[in-house]
Design a protein around this nucleic acid. Structure first.
Lengths: 218, 218
DNA sequence: TTATAATATGAACACTTTGTATATTATTAT
DNA sequence: ATAATAATATACAAAGTGTTCATATTATAA
């Protein structure tokens, strides 16, 4: 998690700086935060900041990178386990327990501050762009695996890239709403609802008991 | 569109300023753009800027507000027409022609610059937040109308608020990808794919020809 | 066309923030 | 204990901000 190769003072300093930045961003927004704000909050000299980071954006991006890497590696690990387990199961059923989606909601709950900052788009383009990239690359892998399992013969009716970005967008949309409204449902419930809408579509979600029109094709 | 109550010079000045800002943001990112950059590009005196706008953010937000208002009013108009037309049709079929979703893709294509700026999250929190709000409020209205038509009796299995944010997120996700990759499909095709995924779910999109598992419920 | 009201401009100003340099002190690792 | 590393205070130049003011230009309506 935190780099052990660093001097103890340096580790402490960086931790204080990123915590101060997070708090200040949530208080008054990224743009309004100055370096002096950060170091004053962290109770450090202003010059100390420049010993560790180039500027405000550098600090934020490095902090986000840490969180993203941690999530990515843990999800990747979980994902491998799942794809093994599900080899012996009906594959396109929404997997209920230990799904990567559930994991994302849990991770977001544990790191709510940084997730809020990321999803609000603070720090502009680069941050949100990087997150969307991660989410849709992951979705691509996930979907192309499922697709190969199920449709060795048929071409998909919609390009995978499009599906992946639909998937990433909807996940980020639900995450954002969930965090901004104070996480009114537990992660498991959010994940369940997400899977339901994703796999079965709005038609099912809106009219749960009618199965009549499903066979039709547009 | 542009306020007729303004002096001709003032209209020209504001237009030049916003065009300059858009171009500069796309060139080097919101944060890096200074007021002097803007006025130099627009070939205006720096003090002139402050005659019209408080700061950089004010200029951007006003420009976005204009675009958003225009879209909102045009969609609202279209939406009324549709809901009348569809009263006499099977209501939960994805409506093919003249759908509000198609309209959004068209509007995005016509105003690609400002849409890119918005969706990249330039100008931070307020902008993206406002857009998500508009999108999900619209989705709320759209969905609750459909829901009432179809399910006067049953409670929806998923809260409308959640569905709306799922919907908004997926639309914004697809829009973003589409614009950032140079609009590789025509608006009509994007809208069609969006409707397909939204209403029928990934299951249908990924395995278009298998209708076997659809009846099941998780 | 002309009067006058509204806009645009350049120069100057105080102020904030940034990023760097330097000399000094404090802490860590071994 | 000591050599290396990190933190600090102070100072500085550069860039950007937002405002004021006197002056010039342009639009509008009588």
């Amino acid at each position: 998690m935190t780099d052990k190769s660093l001097d103890r003072r340096a580790r402490r300093t960086r931790k204080l700086l990123s915590e101060a930045l997070f708090a200040l961003i949530l208080e008054k927004g990224y743009d309004a935060v100055t370096i002096e704000d950060i170091t004053r909050r962290a109770d450090l000299g202003r010059t100390t900041f420049y010993l560790h980071y180039r500027d405000k954006e550098d600090l934020l991006l490095q902090s986000i990178e840490e969180t993203a890497d941690e999530l990515a590696s843990r999800v990747a690990h979980l994902y491998e386990e799942i794809s093994q387990t599900e080899m012996n199961q009906p594959p396109s059923e929404p997997s209920a327990s230990a799904s990567p989606v559930l994991f994302v909601f849990q991770h977001a709950a544990e790191n709510a501050d940084i997730y809020r900052i990321i999803l609000r788009g603070e720090g502009a383009y680069q941050v949100m762009h990087r997150i969307r990239e991660i989410a849709s690359r992951y979705a691509m892998g996930f979907l192309s695996a499922r697709f190969k399992e199920n449709n060795a013969n048929n071409a998909p009716s919609i390009p995978l890239e499009v599906i992946a970005n639909f998937f990433a967008g909807s996940l980020l949309g639900m995450l954002t709403w969930w965090l901004e409204s104070g996480m009114p449902y537990p992660p498991a419930e959010m994940a369940h609802m997400f899977r339901q809408m994703t796999f079965l579509g709005l038609q099912q979600a809106v009219q749960p008991l009618s199965e009549a029109r499903l066979g039709k094709k547009g």
